[in-house]
Design a protein around this nucleic acid. Sequence first.
RNA 1: GUCCCGUUCGUCUAGUCCGGCCUAGGACCCUAGAUUUUCAUUCUAGUAACAGGGGUUCAAAUCCCCUACGGGAUACCA
Length: 523
Amino acid sequence: MIHPTPRLRFAPSPTGALHLGGARTAMYNWALARSLGGAFVLRIEDTDQARSTDESLQIILKGLAWLGIDWDEGPEFDAGDRTNGGGEFGPYFQMQRLDRYRETAAQLLASGHAYRCYCSTERMEKVRAEQKANKSTFLGYDGHCRNLTDDERTAYEEQGIKHNLRFRMPVDRVIVVHDLIRGEVEVNTKQLDDWVMVRPDGVPLYNFACVVDDVDMLITHVVRGEEHFLNGIKQNLVFEALGHECPEYAHIPLILNQKGGKLSKRDPGVKSTLEYRDLGYPPEAVFNYIALLGWGFSADRDVFTRDEMVAAFKIGSVGKAGAKFDVTKLHWMCGEYIRQWSAEQCLVRCRQWLLSELPEESWDKHAGWLRNVVACYQERVQVLSEFPEKIQWLLKDPELDDAACKSIKKRSDSKQWFKGFADLLETLPMAASFPADRGDADEAVRLPTREGQPEPESSFATPAALERAARQWAEEQEIKFGHFVGPVRAALTGTNKGPGFFDVVFLLGKEACVRRLRKQAEL
RNA sequence: GUCCCGUUCGUCUAGUCCGGCCUAGGACCCUAGAUUUUCAUUCUAGUAACAGGGGUUCAAAUCCCCUACGGGAUACCA
């Protein structure tokens, strides 16, 4: 048997956000395509005209691009570093493929696989209600128009009644499908009704359009959510009616919310993909996390790159059970990625969150200082949107929080220390405070200060120089260094958390340190 | 109602296909300790699971059956 080029597709309908479940489906398709050396196609299923919007389309495209899921064929999209889309099997919007559906529908009508149905929505509702009332084991179309005579059809037409097209399902036939995840599953067509392929207005419905496109686009593998499992059976029969072989199917379980229920927009922590972007989640981390929902990279590793995932990905090893979404682990994963970056990389990534608090010009003017600020918080944040709040104390004199007040009150000598330490700082060649020009103070110093690193040389007081001066002073004053740091940090930063004490003093600069110490000394 | 799928630490999972290497491994969370000027990071240690019941077998998390529970489907949505 000839093995065709693997071609996979993700086929979203642009009727809303790309939530993480959809993103994961796209990712599994993408990963399988990449690992097989095949093509990844993005097809837009916009036949539900009432709900499809261009806005949703853009959200989906941006969401995929943000996660680094690139497509070989599909809508064209400029992702900055590359252009996705295009391709010779287009158009990739279903509403632009109506001719193909029309042709194929005519073919199926002619071959008897489809028939015209004149039943009204009202009648269908009534049939359905009766079936429920009778506790029927079968719910669905009753086949009213399945065997209409020509005369009956003509009569309907003459009354001006529009028809839709239904697929004639085989009666009582067992369909065996081989699913890459579920294995062999048997379904009896008794469960399925004659479903609608084409609406009265000529617009096709999902199960029909999907097959026509999968045939035309030479799709070889279909990876999608398990809510489509039964659709797979219906589609199977359309492929058969059309004389084509079925693609391989893989139905992946859904992502569940923390309670084990279906993911919905109301669930906390379960948002549209772009919301994660806007909250400063690193895309690599989100990618990594959702890959893990239903799949294991290896027995002892959870953190891996896109390339590593592609190399390791096997669709058959995706689990059959639904996975619950755990925001806490996502957050841990984010922190893990942020810590992997160099300080410089982190700075660039943080740009928008820093500039939300700072004048644009400070990006260049205080480049070194910002680099050091970011570096000090790199191991203290999990999402980048934490930055604005974290750096407030550097920008304006802080209100003291409870822990800070407590820390100051704990030592009866606090206020004397503030005054004395302020006096000391005034004698040192310290860098100025933001927004004043700090000269090249930040050029030589690379924060955070770590044990054992060589001491930088600078005409300014470095954290190491500050520490020497402070320790010596404390010794002369017979102050226990450990006692002194807590209250002073509180006075300087307004809290008892944060970077190393001398990094704090260094970053804050002379004027602000002295001002805050004297202010607290007098309260 | 009917049909399909599932169920390993609180959570994500490894192991299940081809029963013995499983006194069930890793990660998140939590707890304790170490390091530290705080917080964080880092490191060490600890708690914690084969849904229940029957079989088959010398041997079952792994195979079979039943029950319970969960998810999905049952649209002129996708």
